[in-house]
Nucleic acid binder design. Structure first.
Length: 396
DNA sequence: TCTGGGGTCCTAGGACCC
DNA sequence: TCTGGGGTCCTAGGACCC
């Protein structure tokens, strides 16, 4: 049987700030958006005593805790620490799967062979992380991903929880359905109304095949049933999955219906997405524009094209067309743009620097590049312009 | 002074093809 | 005339996670 650890960094953003601001240690601290509409990303444990927590509007956090030290999110710093964290984990087993910036799975089945004190091994992982990098973590140890994840949540901070299948009735079933991984804000009240308050009650209903639950969970039914009885996938994927979409969004400081303001924000977002596409060497066949109304009602318009979007400028043209066609004049709280149907971009920096070939078929772009080379080298012309067919656009 | 930002996955309906 | 059925792609919306 597999042995998996789920390692979860405790109050990661806050602890990361405390590492470089030791003077704030012992004081209530929160990391989040400082703007009028900002929210708390992470609160330190001291701040949590005041009721400050993730998702709370920043102004409310400051009201709840007047001494709160409030710092902006510094993602690239956290990413740096995060990669140290995952590299550290790889010293115990090569089978490490990052799940997010602050948590991951480690398959320690092999690593534990011949180890006399498995609990000591796990304690060493936790202590070493604190000693060497200065980060606190909670660790769940279990025979599969689901149980390991549930286990790491059970003791925080600096907890270690072993959750074997035989422990499920005692340790998992008494928990409220809200703590079940995959059951969120919207589902909890519905399940409660149907009489399922604890995971144990849910497990019983699932086993019984309650038609309400069958329809409620749909194609996930079998997996949820397995999870409720402590069974599940035990594979740890070491090779990172390719991203499926890249996007940016922005909540405006004030709701606006001013096209000039909105378009300039949109352009900024598109340029950022374009920069990420370039850095990740990706291009996308689809563009989606998202708008949130002041009422919090979301709308999205998306289109798939025949020619990939690979840079910020080309993205902005498409996003702007969607904005003008569908959202011009309406009042907006948030605007976002996403590129999807990603594929590997084979464009090199040299190709990109010659010209923007976003409006051309890819093969034509290659022809154009040859032309460009020939022109610059004043060498033989290998192709003539008439052979290059210009395509209007990939818009369907 | 209500409610961020970056993602993944699922559902459902319509178009289209065979 | 009285309405197939499966598969795939696209789009819009929404739940959920960190």
């Amino acid at each position: 049987m597999a042995v998996l650890m789920h390692v979860d960094l405790n109050a990661f953003f806050a602890e990361a700030e405390l590492l470089r601001h030791p003077e704030y240690r012992g004081k209530p601290l929160a990391v989040g958006g400082k703007g009028r509409r900002g929210v708390v990303s992470t609160a330190s444990y001291e701040a949590r005593k005041y009721g400050v927590g993730s998702g709370m509007p920043s102004y409310q956090a400051k009201a709840a805790c007047p001494n709160l030290i409030f710092l902006p999110v510094d993602f690239s710093y956290y990413e740096m620490l995060s990669s140290s964290f995952f590299n550290y984990l790889k010293r115990y087993s090569p089978l490490v799967e990052p799940i997010s910036i602050d948590e991951g799975y480690v398959d320690i089945t092999k690593a534990l062979e011949g180890v006399e004190d498995p609990m000591g091994f796990v304690k060493q992982v936790q202590r070493g992380l604190l000693l060497e990098i200065g980060l606190k973590c909670s660790i769940g140890v279990a025979p599969n991903r689901f149980l390991a994840k549930m286990a790491s949540d059970m003791k925080k901070p600096m907890g270690i929880t072993v959750l074997r299948r035989r422990d499920v009735p005692r340790l998992l079933w008494p928990l409220p359905v809200s703590s079940f991984y995959g059951i969120g804000r919207k589902s909890v009240p519905l399940l409660q109304k149907a009489g399922y308050k604890t995971i144990g009650e849910l497990a019983e209903g699932l086993k019984r095949g309650d038609p309400y639950l069958v329809s409620f969970f749909g194609k996930n039914y079998r997996e949820v049933l397995a999870h409720a009885y402590g069974q599940g996938n035990d594979r740890v994927e070491v090779v990172p999955a390719e991203p499926k979409s890249i996007g940016r969004s922005l909540t405006l400081e004030q709701d606006s219906n001013d096209p000039e303001e909105i378009e300039s924000r949109l352009e900024g977002l598109c340029l950022e997405v374009g920069a990420t596409l370039k850095r990740e060497r990706k291009e996308g066949m689809g563009v989606s524009l998202t708008v949130r109304e002041p009422s919090f009602k979301n709308h999205s318009k998306s289109l798939t094209y025949e020619v990939p979007v690979s840079d910020g400028k080309g993205l902005y043209e498409k996003a702007l067309a969607l904005y003008e066609e569908f959202f011009l004049g309406i009042s907006i709280r948030l605007i976002g743009v996403t590129v999807f149907s990603l594929r590997e971009s084979n464009s090199t920096d040299i190709q990109m620097s010659f010209f923007d070939y976003g409006d051309y078929e890819k093969k034509d772009a290659t022809k154009l590049m040859v032309q460009e080379w020939n022109r610059r080298l004043e060498g033989p012309v290998l192709m003539v312009a008439s052979q290059v067919s210009k395509k209007k656009d990939g818009t369907k």
